[in-house]
Design a binder for these strands. Structure first.
Length: 542
RNA sequence: GCGCCCGUGGCUCAAUGGAUAGAGCAUUGGACUUCUAAUCCGAGGGUUGCAGGUUCGAAUCCUGCCGGGCGCGCCA
């Protein structure tokens, strides 16, 4: 809002100067003591106009000073233009934000889809899956707040050889429990969870499949294992506050003929050829990557093939854009998928792939690696149980997705204030408490005398609150949810300092108290809204 | 070997090419007869992996090294 104002002003001056080029100038909060906001427009212009930046800045100052919204406009350093807003304008902005407590929410108008937490349902979710689930969910919440109608979807890889292996592994465990000496397949799933599952299987279905292996038995064990894992996974996610609008099965793309359809389309375009008994897609025609197999010499479809079909299905469902969140190990899958989308004639910006790095786990001072197949991991369930939903979610959201994060289990278990989530929640609880005191003392919020908010801290808070929509917009562009946590921590920090320095509720000074309550209300709205976007609770008291 | 990601105080992380590189934790000195001390105020702690380059200006962009991660399957 304040940024918008200055942006408009600068644009107006640019127009007046007769600048026709697009200038991508920036508006930012300058370091302490340089004013409310600042722009670098003069630097960018100096390149075009071949003039000294300070000289250009001077003509900006002359123009901006004419506008009543600014109290002070100054040139600083090599050519920064710094402005201070008038307190009456700041009051207007604050009033506007209070009149619409969720002013940062935009009406939903564009249909998009997020696909995340898609995984082989071959084991309980690990801490690593947790990062993706929370990250994806938080992105969905943020996109929803900024004008997108978002569908959350999870894709289940139930058609491949991994799921067959899972069924076989369960069957082996079943037999082992019943006394047969059979070993797990070499690359089978070794985790104890399959032993538990086998035990339950025996209770439900008895011993009649002992030493019996045929296609019917295989299908039975496979389905049993798959459904059990799925219940387990969705239960875990549900506990974490992550819920999906739709679950999509890979196998359905084969059953309903989408795969054959899409394959036919690609073949018609001459982009498929046969070699060594397999059918290949000409990825190399679209990018610097090798051609990939669509149909194996055995006749079965590769993951690549079904994934193309799946994304064709998404396109046909009418989404303007789809976002896939993948772990870093899927990086190699990007060029071929992009190539396939191009081959099918979908718009270049239809498929958007967001890659995030892995989670390393630190336990008892040591970094541990996780492997589902070997059964060595800390499950997401265990993590949530010991750390709590709020801390788990906050922690996953607070890292740049591009960085490898280290999750220190022992630290997280401490439930101490070493976790910044408490810092933000406490600010919210404090404000709630202020309002409790205010109503006890009969002091009420008052938006008529907000010009009394004149301290640096108060101006700062108004500025920060008004920046919230822009923070969310920046996340829509670069997916860095940590911008939200950083922002909330900033806002909380400024508020805590303010709280310690000034008394909000003072029955002897009703006017100032009323104005300060108005400010607190606006901070509280943002803290509450921001925590909600993170899926973290905003406690009334702590 | 090739491709992508990362490298910032002791630790975990910030910083849309901008001004004096910021927080939290840890260390340390202060502040509760006053709206919640899960807080605040102060101190110490940095050659932003290394070396060049681009420009008014570089943690950020380019090149080359060094170190870590992930790919490079008729796995998913």
């Amino acid at each position: 809002m304040l940024k918008e104002k200055l942006k408009d002003s600068v644009n107006r001056v640019l127009q007046k100067m007769g600048i026709e080029e697009e200038i991508e100038f920036k508006i930012e909060i300058p370091p302490e003591g340089f004013g409310d906001l600042s722009t670098n427009a003069a630097f960018l212009l100096s390149r075009i106009m071949k003039k000294n930046p300070r000289e250009i800045a001077a003509s900006f100052v002359a123009e901006l000073q004419k506008e009543p919204e600014y109290d002070r406009v100054e040139i600083a350093g090599p050519g920064f233009i710094n402005v201070d807003f008038s307190s009456s304008y700041l009051s207007d902005v604050l009033r506007e934000m209070l009149s619409c407590p969720e002013f940062w929410r935009e009406p939903k108008s564009v249909d998009i889809q997020f696909e995340f937490a898609s995984a082989n349902p071959t084991g309980p979710f690990t801490v690593g899956h947790g990062r993706q689930a929370v990250f994806g969910d938080v992105l969905c919440r943020i996109f929803s707040s900024r004008g997108y109608r978002v569908q959350r979807e999870m894709y289940i890889n139930d058609a491949g050889r991994q799921i067959n292996l899972l069924g076989r592994s369960l069957w082996v465990r079943y037999n082992q429990l019943l006394g047969s000496e059979i070993d797990l397949p070499e690359d089978g799933y070794q985790g104890d969870y399959l032993i538990d599952m086998a035990r339950e299987f025996i209770e439900k279905h008895g011993e009649k499949f002992k030493d019996t292996w045929n296609p019917q038995v295989e299908a039975l064990f496979k389905d049993y294992a798959l459904n059990n894992m799925l219940t387990d996974i969705t239960g875990t996610l549900n506990d974490l506050g992550v819920r999906f609008d739709n679950i999509f099965y890979e196998s359905s793309t084969i059953k309903d003929g989408t795969v054959e359809n899409v394959l036919g389309k690609l073949q018609k375009s001459g982009l498929v050829y046969e070699s060594e008994g397999a059918r290949w897609f000409k990825v190399s025609q679209f990018c610097e990557d090798d051609d990939k197999v669509l149909v194996r010499s055995s006749g079965s479809y590769t993951y690549f093939m079904t994934d193309i079909a799946y994304h064709t299905n998404k396109f046909e469902r009418g989404f303007v854009k789809v976002y896939d969140i993948w772990g870093a190990d899927h990086m190699g899958h990007i060029p071929r998928m992009k190539a396939a989308m191009k081959a099918l004639g979908f718009p270049d910006d239809f498929l958007n792939i967001i890659i995030h790095q892995y989670v390393n786990l630190k336990r008892e001072g040591e970094v541990v690696k996780m492997s589902t197949r070997k059964g060595e991991f800390t499950t997401l369930d265990e993590l949530v149980e010991s750390v709590g939903v709020d801390a788990t979610r906050y922690f996953f959201a607070m890292f740049d997705p591009d960085t490898h994060m280290l999750f220190d289990i022992d630290l997280a278990k401490k439930k101490s204030n070493e976790n910044p989530v408490f810092y933000v929640q406490y600010a919210h609880a404090r404000i709630t408490s202020i309002f409790k005191t205010a109503s006890e003392k009969g002091v009420v919020l008052d938006t008529d005398s907000m010009e009394l908010l004149s301290t640096d801290e108060e101006r700062n808070l108004v500025k920060l609150v008004s920046m919230f929509p822009e923070i969310l917009d920046s996340i829509v562009l670069d997916y860095r949810t940590n911008r939200l946590t950083s922002y909330l921590e900033d806002l909380s920090r400024v508020f805590h300092a303010y709280y310690n320095k000034y008394i909000v509720v003072d029955p002897g000074n009703v006017k100032t108290s009323g104005a300060r309550l108005a400010l607190c209300e606006s901070v509280k709205n943002i803290l509450k809204g921001g925590l909600e976007l993170l899926g973290v609770s905003a406690p009334e008291s702590m």
